[in-house]
Amino acid sequence: MMLLLGWRLRPVLVVFIGLPLLKPCLVVASVGDTSYDFQYCLHNCVEEWSGTKYPQNQIDLHLRWLGWTPEEDCQYTCMHAVTEKDVQRGRKIRQFYGKWPFIRIAGVQEPASVFASILNAWAHLTGLQQFTTNTPERYRLRELWMAWSLFSVNAWVWSSIFHCRDTPFTEKMDYFSATAVILVQTYAAARHTNWIRRKNWIFPLALTCFFVYHICYLTFRHRFDYSYNMVAMVTLSVVHSLWWLIWCVLSYRDKPHVRLCVAAIALAGVFMAFEVFDFAPLWGHIDAHCLWHFGTVPVAILWYRFLILDAQQTVDVEHGD
């Protein structure tokens, strides 16, 4: 049995062991912040601020509450000044410091993404409440899926904070929290589909080692490697989705409710395409990443419904109810 289990896990372990070695072939740089017109505008703006006795007090109060500095406010002002000229001249909108030129509201950098993240946190909190209410306590994976729900809520809270105010700290907390959710859900998938047993320690150890490497690699580099992070998250998501789809195909005859699982994975796959094929924000607010966040709300609703039905049927079968 252990030999068979080892062969089942081998392809998955190869992915997690090899993924840290993966380096993207293409590195996308931001041409906006390195352009002459932006640097000229930024230099003049900073020079103007430096001549002020108390430059921080000259920024609006709501911007100060969110931690905006005079230099960052200059970056925002010059970014939109350059973007406005690009639009007038029919040029392609450029990214600045790895980000699109979003229009902030009351100091919030990406209001639409903040709203979408809050909706996702609400969906998981509601789903967790429904799961705990409608799932028998003797269900063997009850605590594991509840833990995944809490990881998800934490991730969406940090997503809201990050899109509200983009700093190196909030960025890392957002990305690392999302990675933790994917890895916990991957472990839950392995347990749910009976590909590993509770006493198996190799697979969770591989997930933990990858998580530690992932954090160290992105933290101690001189610049955050967005390309690597994107490749890593997409790869993990694809592996996780294929894992569930195989199980759904094999279990459909006995578990008709797996159609909800398939629907959730298919819908997530559709919206994941927005993460790969990025585009400049519409009306200064709606970009591909924002649409991906809105799309994960119905995915979460479908997923919790699937988990509840599957838990109820599993308990009925195992205990003969």
Rank of each mutant, 00 (worst) to 15 (best):
L150K: 10
R259L: 06
A155K: 09
E318W: 07
M272H: 13
Y76I: 02
Y40I: 01
L150I: 13
E84Q: 15
I202D: 05
F38I: 00
H222E: 12
R165C: 08
S237G: 12
M173G: 09
E318Y: 05
H192A: 11
P70D: 01
D73T: 00
E143C: 12
V239K: 08
Y217M: 04
K172H: 10
Y139M: 11
E84R: 15
P111G: 13
T34L: 05
F151T: 13
R197W: 05
H214D: 05
P168G: 08
R259N: 04
Y36P: 00
L141Y: 14
M146S: 13
A106C: 14
K255H: 13
D174I: 02
P136A: 13
G320H: 04
L13E: 09
A112I: 05
T170R: 11
L5F: 13
K53M: 04
Y175W: 11
R138D: 02
C261A: 13
V114R: 14
S227E: 15
C41G: 03
L282G: 05
W283F: 09
C290W: 02
P11K: 06
T77A: 11
C248W: 07
G32T: 01
N194P: 01
E84D: 14
L66D: 02
F169D: 10
Q129P: 02
A188D: 02
V31K: 13
L205K: 07
F210V: 01
R8N: 12
V238E: 04
H257W: 05
N229P: 04
L183R: 06
F38Q: 02
V87S: 12
V234A: 15
Q312P: 00
Y175H: 10
P11G: 06
A300I: 00
T83R: 15
I196K: 05
C45V: 00
H80T: 05
W100G: 15
G6F: 14
V231N: 11
F162D: 09
Y36I: 06
W100K: 15
S117A: 15
R10C: 09
